[in-house]
Nucleic acid binder design. Structure first.
Lengths: 325, 325
DNA sequence: GTTCTATGTGGTACCGGTTACACATAATGA
DNA sequence: TCATTATGTGTAACCGGTACCACATAGAAC
């Protein structure tokens, strides 16, 4: 592979001029541009990003740290991030943290060695110390890390309120709330939204704390259905809602005529279930895209207009609820 | 951040000795090791991978090119690749090609500039020219690129045969095969497996060609159900099977008593549907892990024992089929 | 005519590693 | 005893860019 000196020689100019040409920096005559362009083309020259990074101490890598890409919540986010990163000439590095603090710290260390330009992080650790020291831009998605770190997420509280309200509007009077793990920001927010919606209303509510896991959700709901009469479920994720649907099916309870269910997330899963799952959809793509744009702004030294962005959620009414009021 | 010269100075040795220490190469005295280790520790020194790459022309980046990470087939693959990459000190770069040749070529060019060590590619382009020239190791997954490129996939033909046979064993006599796009390797193989299973048997078969898309599958199956009597469906993906389930539901046809369905892939979706989808599971994690291990072998100059690996598929019997023979 | 500024170009130190080579010294073998 | 080999270390060129600085030249301003 040709290097910049080869190009300079072929074009009969200095490396400095070639470098200026490549970066559109400083003065270059039209004649020089012409002759360099020709040389670049003839030699099929591609500048080495590695050498450039070494020299500028900057790179075009973005580290994306997610708990687990297999969780259907993250691929769409990753996709959005990748799309805008590509548009701006960046490349994304995928890291699965498994919510493991040590693994996460390790990744950050490794990627720092590789000169990543910034991080987009979805994590839930209370300890954010390891993020504070490093002088690399960071944007948090889904879960807030620290007040000093820009943060983008769905307006979970309002989203959950809307979802629960829909259950109310559809005639539910005995509602089960499958809240997510307490202590986890988004899960807490959604639970708060649920509470907002039912407060003062004439409904009986039951609450269980359920991890975002299909099998566990199914088992827990099965048990609840045997013990308490329920005509509506607000699940704080599509996966747990799917578990609830399965539990209802096993118990011979028909959805939505006997039991109505609202999920949360708006993943593909919700649309592909039978019957289609009514869910509170997060605009995952928009969150990811915005996070990427913000990070790139930070990387390129621009000021952020907002440091905390809440994206509204949208209720997608499908077949697990009876929409007539 | 401290560099190697700082460490050398602090330890009172030369940079060459420090470099040898870092790479476990050549002779170093125990005394030198001790004093360097101390300096490294005190300065919290981390070698720059960028500088190392520039010098050695090697990197620890692996490019993973998939059509779309949102397709539930790929996250698990990506996860496996990332896991073994991490174990070997590599980092994976995520690229979505959208099956777009130009985008793919662009990615390859960009990543070459960034000195990636190798590629893992899931693509379906007939033209593999752009992969031939580059002297970077490549491993293909799911879809064969070229005879010269190592390839790992599920034994799709045998998998489809098993899945179809299960339908036969469960008493189906009028089977619809929802085959994938013709010309696409895995889809063709699965169709061949279907044909293997029904050949010479006393069954009536119908075949439709259906892209791996939920809505389209639903629409197509709805139409078929109106036109032909069917008691079994072999879908060549879980997503299309899910579409078929929805179509059956809309038509008031009960699964599995009136219609049995077998999917393909063994994604999360299959297990989270109600009723649970019987499916031919690919060991995605194993495919990914093996691909990564093969690629790393290639990168590190080792010989491959096998250049083509077919991983057996496994039938997961759930509730969309009646297992009694 | 002199000073200033805009335009254009080249030389080269530097980023932070690796490694070929030179040069020691001690131990081994003939 | 002398040649050979194993062990240990340092110097400096090199990887392929960037960018500071010096140095032209030409036209404008005074």
């Amino acid at each position: 592979m040709a290097n910049i000196r080869d190009v300079a020689k072929a074009a009969g100019v200095s490396v400095a001029t070639v470098s200026r040409y490549l970066n559109n920096k400083g003065y270059i005559s039209e004649e020089a541009k012409r002759v360099i362009a020709k040389a670049v083309d003839e030699l099929n020259y591609q500048p080495s990003m590695i050498a450039r990074s070494l020299s500028t101490k900057q790179s075009t890598f973005i580290g994306l740290i997610v708990p687990d890409i297999v969780n259907p919540f993250f691929p769409e986010l990753a996709r959005a991030i990748e799309d805008v990163a590509l548009a701006y000439g960046y490349t994304v590095i995928l890291c699965n943290s498994d919510e493991d603090l040590e693994k996460e710290i390790n990744y950050i260390k490794t990627l720092q060695q590789k000169y990543v330009a910034g991080f987009i992080v979805a994590t839930s650790h209370a300890e954010a110390d390891h993020y504070m020291g490093l002088d690399i831009p960071i944007v948090a998605i889904d879960r807030r890390i620290h007040s000093s770190i820009p943060y983008i997420a769905t307006d979970n509280r309002e989203g959950a309120r809307i979802g629960t309200q829909h259950l109310l509007d559809s005639g539910c009077t005995q509602i089960l709330c499958m809240r997510g793990p307490s202590g986890l920001g988004p899960a807490d927010d959604r639970f708060a939204g649920f509470t907002d919606a039912v407060k003062g209303k004439n409904v009986e509510t039951h609450v269980i704390e359920c991890p975002f896991h299909f099998d566990i959700a199914e088992t827990m709901v099965k048990k609840v259905l045997q013990e308490v009469p329920i005509d509506g479920i607000f699940a704080s994720s599509d996966v747990t809602a799917a578990g609830a649907m399965k539990a209802a099916y096993s118990a011979g309870i028909h959805v939505p005529s006997q039991l109505q269910i609202v999920g949360y997330d708006g993943t593909m899963l919700a649309s592909q279930l039978t019957p289609g799952l009514t869910t509170v959809a997060q605009d995952l793509y928009r969150i990811g895209a915005m996070a990427a744009r913000m990070l790139i702004k930070l990387i390129e030294g621009q000021e952020l207009t907002e440091r905390e962005v809440l994206i509204p959620a949208e209720l997608l009414i499908r077949q697990t609820t009876r929409s007539e009021a």
